[in-house]
Design a protein around this nucleic acid. Structure first.
Lengths: 211, 211
DNA sequence: TAGATTGTTAATCGATTAACAATC
DNA sequence: TAGATTGTTAATCGATTAACAATC
């Protein structure tokens, strides 16, 4: 342990999550110790960068030796906030929403899907995995009752903004937005919105391929 | 038209894709003209940045007036390479792969899913949407026959690296990797790999919420 | 012309990298 | 001790922003 820890750059946060993913793999395969150089190679990065990122954890490796995989995993999880269970709901049970609801990777990282909501009367009451689809009207009550932390938003573009307001009103502090449109938190809200767009990822790839 | 166009920063490419998404929305609602200020507000950015990004297109707005929505859309698509159809295959028809195969957003942006592959004998021959799941052994032949441009990789972590080699061998120049592990292109390959991890997006959101 | 908004420069800010002293 | 690798500094590189001349 070295530093009382500063503000962590966004780019660092993203890389830390990638380090974590690899470290968990390494741990599964029985590796106990690792060096910045090996992490860097595995991810195609510079080893200086890896050490600098890790130094944000305020934890420490051993000079001449490296890092304990177990320690690094714990430190990164502690910084990311994923050393606990996060309670998540899904809003919008269309094609993509249904898919996301079954995605194993969320559960594995401690994101627990507790509810699913839609406006379509045809869908309400039907099962989705272990859950039953609820009316969007229930969202506020449900979110408060279960102290929901995060909402995964997978509704059509034209519904997205009004659903954001509903999620905010329900007191949920974070939204992962898959709706293909920019949405804004309302003025006084402290809700964090993180954008994900799978088509945009393909476009970025297409650009790289053309160059 | 101003500049012969330089290298475009990666951050700019990503934002251009987001501008495109908004502009397409605006066009659908009948808007013909737009200003950097309005784009910036809609996306929560600085208007200087929007103008600078757009200036990478080598296209031009009209001082005192703004940009033609139609022109901007065309220019951005031309830079991203999405002014044409991209031929895509899916490798790995698990939970996530199945979901991705039905995602409308890909088709809407000109990404055409032509094939789906898996190694599981149980799945081969079964339908997925309009397609029939093929054996991974068929990948090379199929990719060359149809001149496939991009592969969406959605296999388990332990299979990912060997499938990457197979995709490279099939001559496919771009991979969108959903497998939760870092993979590397083989040494002499020019294949571009773009990482996407939905659990990591949730982790980034969790971090922002905690702060 | 007067008002508006672009395109672009120069200044600022932040992130990456090389290098090396500290130290296991 | 000798060899290895971290933690951290200083230098470089790239991205963002403010400001304003150009011009519609």
């Amino acid at each position: 342990m070295t530093k009382p820890r500063q503000q962590i750059p966004k780019a660092t946060v993203t890389r830390l999550a990638f380090y974590l993913r690899e470290l968990q793999q390494m741990q599964r395969s029985g590796l106990a110790n690792i060096q910045s150089r090996a992490i860097a190679e595995r991810l195609g990065l510079n080893d200086s960068q890896v050490r600098r990122d890790i130094s944000c954890l305020g934890t420490v490796g051993q000079r001449g030796v490296g890092y304990q995989v177990e320690d690094l995993i714990q430190s990164i999880q502690s910084i990311l906030g994923t050393d606990r269970i996060w309670k998540v709901i899904l809003v919008g049970v269309g094609n993509l929403g249904r898919a996301l609801s079954g995605y194993r990777g969320f559960q594995e990282q401690g994101f627990d899907l507790l509810g699913a909501f839609d406006t379509d009367a045809e869908k309400i009451g039907k099962p989705i995995g272990q859950l039953k689809i609820q009316s969007l009207d229930q969202l506020g009550t449900f979110a408060k009752l279960h102290a929901i932390d995060l909402a995964i938003l997978a509704v059509p573009a034209d519904a997205a903004q009004s659903v954001v307001f509903a999620i905010e009103a329900a007191g949920i502090p974070g939204i992962l937005n898959f709706a293909p449109i920019a949405v804004q938190p309302s003025v006084h809200s402290k809700t964090i919105i993180q954008e994900v767009d799978l088509a945009i990822e393909l476009q970025r790839l297409a650009f790289s391929v053309v160059r």
